[in-house]
Design a protein around this nucleic acid. Structure first.
Length: 415
RNA sequence: GGAGAGGUGGCCGAGUUGGUUGAAGGCGCACGACUCGAAAUCGUGUAAGCGAGGAGACUCGCUUCGAGGGUUCGAAUCCCUCCCUCUCCGCCA
């Protein structure tokens, strides 16, 4: 969530950002009124609590007089009533706060998906290729039928060389992020509601969520390692000189992806479960813009090294989620679909997630403030396979292994 | 899953016949003194959130002793539920 003081001082900007992101129900004026009401009730409750405390203090040492006890009872009754009002006011207020999205940066394009701005392209585009699923099935590298039998549609098995290739990409990317200062972590694959909510997943009801929830357990299967990585430092105050903290988390990602069947989501491109290596940063507010660019550079380096053509787009406001202030996507060139398709993305969430989960920094002068968080995909494995099959396939049905992956494939050049 | 013990400030650790205990003491940290400098020593300070006042340094009120609920004039202290940690047993990768 945002800082209420920031909202108060920048009401118009926050309202504009919400609309530009497509959150039409957000009403900042109403929110500020709810906050005002809350504050007034808070003051009245505080007054009564002061009376209660003073009254109790008089009875501290000695036998309580009946008149004081009676007075205390009166206070107690009045207090209980006002505390009820306050509790309700607080609930209304926090409900309203929780739906206010992060503001967007000035350099975010306004509009919907089609308004995202290309800021860079790299590599030579290939003209044609066979669909990755047809290609892989022919080689017996992937089995969606068995996946459907065992777990349902959009579940799959990777087999043989393709499964080995997935592992090779993972090993390559892992080495890359560790070399660049990220601390590697494995993470819980489920998170509690609080962490899910705080990191920006799990909206109000589970029905409209992309996430899987565990019955009767207050747990959610993670859709990305971003969730447990964000929660890692929940409720902590981190000394300034420890920042930035860079982590890389590897995990399976579980997503419902309801209603996304179609030509462009065939095969491994959009599935219910895939593995992903995620970069994550906790940093000082003044560092987050630079680190965002740096994470983007890392993503580019990975795909340049793998030799897959791509472009970078600055995502338009309407496509940003609740927590992001700015987001870049790296989209690879698909010679099958003759267009760029999403491969990785990185977001600057500024203090939005951190405030939800109470993650702060202690400055050298002792001041405490909410820090910033960022996340970016190192490699999303299922999609990486699609990109590589499309861009490295040979006419004889074999697949050339990108050079940097060969050390992880027993030195083989093709499969 | 069963039995028992516990969860207090950045850390360790007092406080459990309810009443100046937001919380002793120690460590750590910051500043100062001493020193050519450092160590040691001594002194002072050292939680966060919300709200009110002030230009500001700050001052005041409220909340927080795992979380939530209850008893009471008053709860870190008593009761209930849940979560977590530790020990033993069971079960296993």
């Amino acid at each position: 969530m945002l800082d209420i003081r920031f909202i108060r001082e920048n009401a118009e900007r926050v309202q504009d950002s919400a609309l530009q992101k497509g959150y039409k129900d957000v009403d900042i004026k109403k929110l500020l009124e709810l906050n005002e009401a809350r504050r007034e009730l808070q003051q009245r409750v505080d007054e009564l609590r002061t009376q209660r405390n003073n009254n109790a203090a008089k009875m501290k040492d000695g036998k309580p007089e009946q008149s004081l006890i009676d007075e205390g009872k009166q206070i107690k009754i009045a207090l209980a009533e006002r505390e009820d009002y306050l509790t309700n006011a607080e609930r209304e207020y926090t409900d309203a706060m929780n739906v206010v999205p992060n503001i967007i940066f000035d350099d975010v394009p306004i509009g919907g998906e089609e308004d995202s701005v290309e800021i860079k392209t790299w590599g030579d585009k290939r003209d044609t290729a066979i669909d990755h699923l047809d290609f892989a099935v022919k080689r017996d590298w992937v089995d969606f039928e068995a996946g459907a039998k065992v777990a349902g549609a959009k579940f799959y098995y990777l087999k043989g060389d393709l499964a080995l290739l997935e592992n090779a990409i993972y090993q390559f990317a892992l080495e890359f992020v560790v070399k660049n200062g990220f601390t590697f972590m494995t993470v819980p694959h489920m998170v509690s509601e609080r962490i899910a909510y705080g990191s920006g997943f799990a909206p109000k009801s589970s029905t409209e969520s992309n996430e899987y929830f565990i019955d009767n357990e207050n747990l959610m299967l993670i859709g990305t390692a971003e969730a447990p990585l964000t929660g890692y430092h929940a409720d902590e105050i981190i000394d300034e000189d420890r920042l930035p903290l860079l982590y890389a988390g590897y995990s399976p990602c579980y997503r419902k992806e309801a209603g996304t069947y179609g030509k462009f989501t065939r095969g491994l491109f959009r599935v219910h479960q895939f593995n992903k290596l995620e970069m994550y940063a906790f940093c000082l507010p003044e560092q987050s813009r630079d680190i965002h660019e740096k994470i983007l550079k890392f993503e580019e380096q990975i795909w340049q090294t793998l030799g897959v053509p791509y472009h970078i787009i600055n995502i338009a406001s309407g496509d940003l989620g609740l927590p992001a202030a700015k987001k870049y996507d790296l989209e690879y060139w698909s010679p099958v679909d003759k267009k760029f398709r999403e491969l990785t993305s990185c977001s600057n969430c500024t203090d939005f997630q951190a405030r939800n989960l109470n993650i702060r920094v202690r400055r050298k002068d002792g001041k405490v403030e909410v820090l910033h968080t960022l996340n970016g995909t190192a490699v999303s494995l299922a999609r990486s396979l699609v990109a590589i099959i499309e861009n490295y396939q040979n006419e004889d049905g074999s697949l050339t292994i990108p050079e940097v992956l060969r050390p992880y494939m027993g030195g083989r050049e093709r499969i």
